[in-house]
Simulated assay, not measured.
Amino acid sequence: MFTGLIDKLKGKRTAAVKTPEIMGLRLGASFELDPLAIRLILDELTIESCSPTQIIRAAGLVELDGTWVYRFYTDDDAWLQVVAEGGQTDEHVVDVKLFHFYDTLDVAGQQAWDRLLQREIGAASYSLRERTYGRVWTSAGDYHNPVHMAEKTYDGDGEHSLTDQFTMLFERPLSDQRTESLFLSAEEKQEQAGYLSRSLVISTGITLTPSQLTIHG
């Protein structure tokens, strides 16, 4: 009785924070890539290198209608995205992609932000380093409004942050019949100092099969 009262008075946390976890992927875990999965196509990819072993430093989760998007951020300036549909167990996983951050661009001013969301991010194609990617998500018109995702991201201490993301996915073919993905995310975040930061985060990645990924819990 007294212990519980003291804990309340001190504001002591009595329950561990539950962070995103699926397929054995979680904060502090690591995974290995089949070297051939990258080596055979590395010359065609936007990235110049990829570590075969990566440690998860942060984990995020986006909840959509019947779909959960898990993101595991690594020490290789990369993030592994796992999409589950209809449930949150391993058997519900429908897609796994490994992305690397390409660039983060500050968006200054409301006009620039509106132009990005209303005319740029959802165009039919996007060019990066003289490579053209076609939009994956279809629309009845030429322009596709960005898809909103609210991500809750946890760091190694269990602290979390919230980010509003307005996203679009593109891809281009590779020589081995796979594709390189391009993920654009226009992000808004309320900073601790009280101001709203906005940026365009550009990432490129590839789809992985279960045989190309070994997870170490």
Rank of each mutant, 00 (worst) to 15 (best):
V107P: 06
F99I: 01
R178D: 06
Q88P: 09
A193S: 15
S175A: 07
T104D: 09
H92S: 05
R57H: 10
K12Y: 10
Y126N: 05
D90M: 08
T74M: 02
E120W: 13
R115I: 12
G158R: 06
S51Q: 12
T104A: 09
S185N: 07
M168A: 10
E151R: 07
F72D: 00
I202K: 07
L200K: 06
L98K: 04
S203C: 06
S181I: 12
Q111H: 14
G194A: 01
L80I: 02
K189F: 12
T214L: 12
V93G: 02
T207Q: 14
Q190G: 10
G194W: 05
T153A: 07
R178A: 07
L42A: 05
G217P: 15
T74F: 00
G156K: 13
L80T: 03
F72S: 00
R71F: 05
P173Q: 01
G4K: 10
L182D: 02
F99L: 03
Q110M: 12
E85L: 08
A16C: 09
V147L: 14
P146Q: 00
F99M: 00
H144I: 10
G194M: 03
T138H: 14
A16I: 10
A29T: 03
A193T: 15
A78Q: 06
D75S: 01
L208S: 02
T89V: 09
R131K: 14
D95I: 09
T204M: 07
F183D: 05
A124W: 13
E32D: 12
D176V: 02
L208I: 00
D75F: 02
Y73Q: 07
E44F: 04
G156P: 10
D65L: 11
L184F: 03
D114K: 14
F2T: 15
R135F: 04
D114A: 11
G141P: 08
S203G: 03
S181C: 13
I41D: 05
P210A: 00
T53Q: 14
D164A: 07
E21R: 09
K189M: 13
Q111I: 11
D155F: 06
N145Y: 15
G11E: 00
V93W: 04
D77F: 14
L213S: 01
H160E: 12
A37R: 10
L40R: 15
V107C: 03
D75Q: 02
T209W: 10
E188D: 06
G60L: 00
G205I: 01
L33Y: 05
Q190R: 15
A58V: 04
Y143V: 01
F101G: 10
L116C: 06
D106V: 13
V201L: 12
S139W: 07
V83S: 03
V136I: 09
P146R: 04
G24S: 03
G156Q: 13
E191V: 09
I55E: 13
S139L: 06
D76A: 04
S185T: 04
D7H: 13
S30R: 11
T204Y: 08
S30V: 04
L45K: 07
F170E: 02
Q111K: 15
N145H: 15
C50K: 11
T104S: 10
L64V: 05
K97E: 08
E188V: 07
A108I: 15
E63D: 11
M149S: 12
P52V: 00
D65C: 09
G60C: 01
A123Q: 15
A37L: 06
